[in-house]
């Protein structure tokens, strides 16, 4: 039982936790800046980015793909800005134009290029493969202290850990900047904060988080973790720091409950197979939101 957990659930849970917490922390600021759908947009444009990186470099190595996806995310933000500013198109419509077009381009490139030998398809991009991230070297708790066994942990873990460290570090260092541009852009600008630069920084961090997460868990979890835990937390408190802390808590809860539920939900029906863990995590986060939307102490604005 314990060995089973360490071998099959430990790594997915850890990876899921790092991803969910990273996305949720950033999601608080996107939510407050009324840019919740930026995560939707980013997670769609990641596909053409990695496909293009694959077509150009001919390999499915991690770094080219992450760079490709990051570039695609920033490009999409630039396109949206141009369409809104020059074309005077509704921002949400402009966003819809850009991310659907780029996603379509990604699908087309994927179908036209020869990707049979690599792990790259649309389904994978959508739901990821959290279940496949197993730790074969695990034999009991002692493995957690055994460097040889630890080396056998899926390499995705180290990647999401690095991104988690980067994002939490950046949030701590630039906390005041993010708060200022989220609350009062005009005051921020007059006080010498480069609003454009800081908001691009926030979006870049989101893109990095989405790209790192996407390979392991797929884009649905990414969107769900960016939006649901912060939204849930917002309905329970009127303090920013509490909101961020609660969002981390809800993100973690979604991952743990989601992974456990995915393994056991079909047991009563006589099946021992797991359902999609990524999907289950997102569903749990949605259930948490639904609960706080109905019962949350601060679900309504005061005025």
């Amino acid at each position: 039982m314990l060995d089973d957990f360490l071998m099959f659930s430990f790594a997915p849970m850890l990876i899921g936790l790092f991803i969910a917490i990273t996305c949720a922390i950033l999601g608080n600021f996107l939510l407050l800046r009324k840019q919740a759908l930026v995560s939707d947009s980013i997670s769609h444009v990641v596909l053409p980015g990695i496909v293009l990186a694959f077509v150009v470099t001919g390999s499915a190595a991690t770094w080219p793909m992450m760079i490709g996806a990051g570039v695609a995310a920033l490009l999409s933000v630039a396109f949206i800005e141009v369409i809104v500013r020059f074309g005077r198109i509704e921002p949400s419509a402009a966003m819809g134009v850009v991310f659907t077009s780029m996603f379509a381009l990604g699908v087309l490139l994927l179908e036209l290029s020869d990707t049979r030998n690599v792990h790259l398809d649309v389904q994978h991009a959508l739901y990821g493969s959290l279940e496949s991230l197993i730790w074969l070297d695990a034999v009991g708790w002692r493995s957690l202290l055994d460097p040889v066994a630890l080396a056998g942990l899926p390499h995705e873990l180290w990647r999401v850990l690095a991104v988690f460290a980067l994002v939490t570090g950046a949030i701590i260092v630039f906390w005041r900047h993010f708060v200022l541009i989220s609350f009062d852009e005009t005051f921020a600008a007059s006080a010498g904060v480069h609003v454009g630069l800081v908001s691009i920084f926030l979006i870049s961090l989101s893109a990095i988080a989405a790209v790192a997460a996407f390979d392991a868990v797929g884009s649905i979890i990414v969107i769900a973790m960016f939006v649901c835990p912060p939204a849930t937390a917002r309905l329970l408190t009127n303090r920013l720091k509490t909101q961020v802390a609660l969002s981390v808590l809800f993100a973690s809860l979604s991952v743990i409950v989601g992974i456990l539920a995915s393994g056991y939900v079909l047991r009563p029906f006589g099946y021992t197979d797991s359902v999609s863990a990524a999907g289950m995590i997102a569903v749990i986060s949605g259930i948490l939101l639904a609960a706080s939307a109905v019962f949350g102490k601060h679900r309504l604005a005061v005025n």
């Binding site: 407050l32 009062d184 852009e185 005009t186 005051f187 303090r239 920013l240 005061v302």
Partner: peptide, 18 residues
């Protein structure tokens, strides 16, 4: 040496701060 006070309506007063 300068303090600028924007229009009150320019910010979201539903923001979670005190």
């Amino acid at each position: 040496r300068i303090s600028y006070v924007p229009q009150r309506a320019s910010v979201d007063w539903d923001f979670p701060v005190t």
